[in-house]
Write a protein that binds this DNA or RNA. Sequence first.
DNA 1: ATGATTTAAGAGTATCTTATCCTAATATAC
DNA 2: GTATATTAGGATAAGATACTCTTAAATCAT
Lengths: 150, 150
Amino acid sequence: MLLSKSCVYALRASLYLASKNENGYIPIREMSEKLDISFHFLTKILQQLTSEGMLESYKGPNGGVRLTRSGEEISLMEVVLAIDGDYMLTECAFGLPGCGVMKPCPIHEKWAETRDNIKYMLESTSLTELSKKGKEFNLRMTADGGFNDI
Amino acid sequence: MLLSKSCVYALRASLYLASKNENGYIPIREMSEKLDISFHFLTKILQQLTSEGMLESYKGPNGGVRLTRSGEEISLMEVVLAIDGDYMLTECAFGLPGCGVMKPCPIHEKWAETRDNIKYMLESTSLTELSKKGKEFNLRMTADGGFNDI
DNA sequence: ATGATTTAAGAGTATCTTATCCTAATATAC
DNA sequence: GTATATTAGGATAAGATACTCTTAAATCAT
Ligand code: FES
Ligand code: FES
């Protein structure tokens, strides 16, 4: 799989936050229920995003998490880097050490091109862009629910 | 990671076989040593390729495995499908069920494009193409060894 | 102050992937 | 036939990823 499951959960949750253009904090419990993701697991993942500075959190009643910047400024890449790291973008497709530094492997040229393509897609897509599209076409965020159910 | 480790081992081994344009069987032990892959693990992986019909095997002295068709006709995609299945090419990037069948998720459009790109790269690259390039430029197949060491 | 709500943090469990080991089964060479 | 080389296949272990549970800390409402 391209992205880890944790990373996908992080993306869906970030998208959820970006779609709420309120300024308040959103409880993780609410997100976990709407997005159908285990509450405790999601909590851990969002803690990572918080410690990376992408989210800020607040405890107690009316607490929760929110984006530190506008969803317009946050790319999917930022979320992926925070959770999965840059592994996908720097490692050799053959698993050999030092891609781009040492002598390339036979698949390097082709892989570098494909990788750039993936990279560009993640970098050029913002949370707001997906959120807008989701709202407009009522795209689904869960196994069966549409965007406007959340 | 895009491809599983098993799949990467399978690709490297297939490439090794394609680079030997002899008609005889190549022992797995030889491959495992040259490519620096655990013998027993590699054996299991190649058994899968054999049962998929991509390789044929022969037991006993002078036994081993060989490609059933010319390396020219075998694409990287074929190896990937045999080991990792079509998961990467059919599943939703958000992990939701029924990508392409049910209502799309917000990232579907972008992901489908990226996925097509990956697919095209794997389909349009043959074992022989990489093998030729590997020989010509002495590209590396192991952590430190060049193609012409194998 | 007390109790309710919510995130933080860490330990514990399950499941999947990767790797190792051992025993068969098959083929060759002598 | 006996010894040797080699793949086939199952059982098990180690490691990583995914998930669960419990307790602590912060904040608010009364
Ligand atoms: S060295 Fe293998 S992909 Fe770059
Ligand atoms: S439905 Fe999510 S990528 Fe196709």
